[in-house]
Design a protein around this nucleic acid. Structure first.
Lengths: 219, 219
DNA sequence: GCTATCTGAACGAACGTTCGTTTCGCAAGG
DNA sequence: CCTTGCGAAACGAACGTTCGTTCAGATAGC
């Protein structure tokens, strides 16, 4: 009951899976509870018994749905990368052929995904290192593909002369990073909702790429 | 011997403490080995026995120097925050009174610290969440002071009209983030050494702040 | 009566930590 | 020069607990 609060990385918020590919049922409940726990205490800091307690189950019951604790993490990590990659791909498809529009779409999607699914963003980016290489590999492959999307847009924009950057790789890293650290400080408020945040990240990204935007409001 | 390689977050590089405040000896060796281990496997993923093995000691020997595993981490986390804060403070003192120069100094120092001490950066930013609140508190206080330094410079620049940002808080977060994610992708090479990287981060930061820099080289 | 799900008990291993003993460098005393 | 005593450091063995996981059996829905 009155156990001293364990340290927590993310304010407790209900974890929501970004996909409907996992049908309702115990398996989905396990994934959502594990997402919450792994995000707040880390993979090694959250035990199977913690997970079972959160689900009001006995530890052994989990093994009817997953073959090991690592496989639960692996599924979360893969799912997160899939949602991310699919989000970027869809955004790019919906944008026109102009690099500026494409970049706007990518940064918006990247920011919205990280802001709307902070726990998954944390687990995907931190706890993937707790997976053995063979379980992490599929996710890492997806990650490379996602990075390639951004690089391609930046390179095209540079070739067309609409982007002007001192160093494409460092700039791409900077833009990706905007989203990656979000879960650690951002929380939606009426004064700064996810949509405004995405617009701000687009603006910052374009500035880094040397695109002259509209003058900033006086505020 | 041929144990299957455990997953690792950071390429193995010798961990160097950024301070000479810790005298040579076993205590310092423990801190450096723990830094290496905690950075690569995480606090919960690295055991006292792992640490002892790396030091060619028996687990019990460590307790002559630290009262618990948590206290080893706490010392690393505090030391990292102190080095960071002191680095920023010194950089700011060495800069003039112009916001642009002050920002350049802060971003340079921030980037150099993270690039030169990647393990410490990772431990400080990720593993601090494994500490009980009372051990994390001193470091968190320092962190707030460091953030305040950046905020103050941005606010002064904005008041003087040399910076023009759509949202000061989000821009400050973006600039901090540039350094925080460095350990995960950057490694010094002749083609991109730490000094060039710091310059690039300064340039990106000034662009985000709406400062017109020199035109980017054609490369 | 088959299948899917969960329980209860238990397994061996690994965990952080404690404690009595041993080792060793070194200064003091004869 | 040898002995003695001392404090710091490391050892070796063990502690109680928690870890991930297994498995035979109970339960429930089709």
């Amino acid at each position: 009951m009155s156990v001293p609060l364990p340290p927590s990385r993310l304010r407790a918020r209900k974890a929501v899976l970004p996909t409907s590919a996992v049908p309702d049922g115990t398996r989905r409940r396990i994934l959502e509870a594990a997402l919450q726990l792994f995000a707040s205490r880390g993979f090694h800091g959250a035990s199977i018994r913690d997970l079972a307690t959160a689900l009001e189950l006995r530890p052994s019951a989990l093994y009817a749905h997953f073959s090991s604790k690592e496989h639960v993490l692996a599924e979360l990590v893969l799912m997160g990368h899939e949602a991310h990659h699919e989000g970027l791909r869809a955004a790019l498809l919906g944008a026109g052929s102009e690099p500026i529009e494409q970049l706007r779409a990518l940064v918006r999607a990247h920011t919205l995904l990280h802001a709307n699914h902070p726990q998954l963003a944390v687990v995907v980016n931190e706890e993937i290192h707790s997976l053995p290489p063979e379980l992490a590999a599929p996710a890492l492959a997806l990650r490379e593909q996602s990075a390639a999307l951004l690089h391609a847009v930046i390179e095209r924009g540079r070739a067309q002369g609409v982007f002007s950057v001192p160093h494409a790789g460092v700039t791409a890293a900077a833009i990706s990073t905007l989203g990656l650290r979000l879960p650690y400080w951002y929380e939606p408020t009426p004064a700064l909702d996810v949509d405004m945040l995405a617009d701000l990240h687009v603006e910052l990204s374009l500035r880094m790429l040397g695109v002259q935007g509209p003058p900033a409001p006086a505020s």
